[in-house]
Write a protein that binds this DNA or RNA. Structure first.
Length: 498
RNA sequence: GCGCCCUUCGUCUAGCGGUCUAGGACAUCGCCCUUUCACGGCGGAAACACGGGUUCGAUUCCCGUAGGGCGCGCCA
């Protein structure tokens, strides 16, 4: 069994080597894998990988109402896409409730827990009174030492921890430092509900122990829970794992991260055209630093990552920096890899199927040829797709407003001349085309831009694009001339064919 | 309300008592490159929340104040 194995591992190593590092990522499957969870997973993964350890994955699905299989799938899919691999089988917490109950019974037997018969109304009253009087202890421990024979016959008891009354509970946190709570402020938490199901507090402690978790790295929204969990560990006589509570990610305005801010599922980042290495790089630098280094390969991250360098203040999510980093990784990527990445991305885009259908072998080749200049101009994969719109467009290609405005009568006349020049170009190479166009501009005493811009408008339908000679070369002679001629059909402009 | 945590350029951060005229990155502004847009290069502007201590000396240590966050369920 899982916990026996963990126990065994622990004993075997007690006198020899320090325990191998075991971390865990423990999301509850009530929604997608959001960006904060992704960072927590990344930190756990990096820490384990950097020390030859393991990162386990536990799905905290004890809330039967809110847990869904779709959410489990989304979490696994999100982690996989991000390149964060967990070790071993995925553990589902709900499946372990018998074990949790067993531990609660054990604590009852050893006198570390007791049955509480307080009713929901009583509890509410106690809570309200405590708040009113400024006390932080919400449950007064009224059944702690009371004779169970006094129990009301109709009430099913919950099992509560007999927490220490005096002294303090201390967590030596790798990120937060020494954090202490006065025990008089902590009340007796519920271990087992009256319906016999374990609470989160109990389940987490038991699972982390049984799984042999050595390092708990999680959001600092759990810091207060850590104190209560420490009390459970102590009651059980179990070794407390090393804790590291990392600050949460905030929105750009410093408030809680909302959907509008970027609290999206990682699938949304995929759909926005971000690359996993870029997202990982962005996330690892959010709250953690390694001197002045900004760019980290996966290997470098694993090598450099450590807990003490994590800051204690919450970081704000900044799309601009993510974009910049993504642009960096896009420029860094091989052209073929980007085409492949876009192939995969198309599966997740609303109009992806349409574009995918257009990707004939010929177009794919054009796409690949254009990639060096496309990726230079892109911050996301979506930018690349958008930049390549001139490849996907069908004749006659639609012109946007600014392109239309650019194609004045004079411009069209010039375009006509350019077309004549181009007809003579052979072979159809970027260099040959450039020579021809430059020659024309020179002969007419024009700046290159004066010739290039109308050409760009006619070929791409826009006023910005990759280098115009590359566009011409990639499109091919026939298509290029066709697009130019499409713009010259007005009665007042005629191309005098030779 | 109670408990706990946080506070260096707009943002992410370096700094771990003198090296700070506070460094880097993103964003921003200017210039250069240039067929557009980018990329790239160069340069500029930009911060130690406030008030007390401790110390020969505080961005660094301590205490307050202010501001922000998290937690406070028989949710996870």
């Amino acid at each position: 069994m899982l916990w026996q194995r963990a126990e065994q591992v622990r004993t075997n190593h007690r006198d020899s080597m320090p325990d191998p590092v075991v971390t865990r990522f423990a999301p509850s499957p009530t929604g997608f894998l959001h960006i904060g969870g992704a960072r927590t997973a990344l930190f756990n993964w990096l820490y384990a990988r950097g020390r030859g350890g393991k990162m386990l994955l536990r799905i905290e699905d004890t809330d039967r109402e809110r847990s869904t299989q779709a959410a489990v799938d989304a979490i696994l899919d999100g982690l996989s896409w991000l390149g964060i691999a967990w070790d071993g089988e995925v553990i589902f917490q709900f499946a372990r409730s018998a074990r949790h109950r067993e531990v609660a019974e054990q604590m009852l037997a050893s006198g570390h827990a007791y049955r509480c018969y307080a009713s929901a109304e009583e509890l509410t009253q106690m809570r309200e009174a405590a708040r009113r009087e400024g006390r932080s202890k919400l449950y007064d421990g009224r059944w702690r030492d009371r004779d169970p024979r006094e129990a009301p016959p109709s009430v099913k008891p919950a099992i509560r921890l007999k927490a220490p009354l005096t002294g303090e509970t201390v967590i030596d946190d790798q990120v937060q430092g020494r954090v202490a709570w006065q025990n008089e402020n902590l009340d007796d938490l519920v271990l087992l509900r009256s319906d016999g199901t374990p609470t989160y507090m109990l389940a987490v402690v038991v699972d982390d122990h049984d799984m042999g978790v050595t390092h708990i790295i999680r959001g600092d929204d759990h810091l207060t829970n850590a104190a209560r969990q420490k009390q459970i560990y102590d009651s059980l006589g179990w070794h407390v794992p090393t804790m590291a509570h990392i600050p949460l990610i905030h929105g750009p305005d410093g408030s809680k991260l909302s959907k509008r801010h970027g609290a999206l599922g990682v699938d949304a980042y995929r759909a926005m055209g971000y690359l996993p290495p870029a997202l990982r790089n962005y996330l690892v630098r959010l709250g953690w630093s390694h001197g002045d280094q900004e760019i980290f390969s996966t290997e470098e991250m694993i090598e450099a990552f450590d807990l003490p360098q994590i800051g204690r203040s919450p970081a704000r999510f900044d799309f601009a920096k993510l974009e910049n980093l993504n642009g960096h990784y896009i420029r860094q990527s091989a052209d073929a890899e980007l085409v492949t990445a876009i192939d995969r991305l198309l599966l997740h885009l609303a109009n992806g199927a349409n574009l995918a259908a257009k990707l004939t072998p010929r177009l794919r080749q054009q796409f690949l040829t254009a990639m060096p200049s496309l990726k230079e101009r892109a911050k996301t994969l979506i930018d690349i797709i958008d930049g390549a719109h001139f490849l996907f467009a069908d004749r006659p290609i639609p012109l946007d407003d600014r392109a239309k405005a650019l194609l004045t009568l004079e411009a069209k006349a010039l375009l006509g001349e350019t077309a004549q020049e181009l007809i003579a170009v052979e072979p159809w190479t970027s260099e040959g085309i450039e020579q021809a166009v430059r020659r024309l501009a020179e002969r007419r005493g024009l700046k290159l831009g004066a010739v290039a811009q109308p050409l760009r408008a006619a070929l791409t339908g826009r006023i910005t694009s990759p280098g115009i000679f590359e566009v011409l070369a990639v499109l091919g002679k026939e298509e290029s001339l066709g697009r130019v001629l499409d713009q010259l059909t007005d009665a007042d402009v005629s191309l005098r064919a030779p």
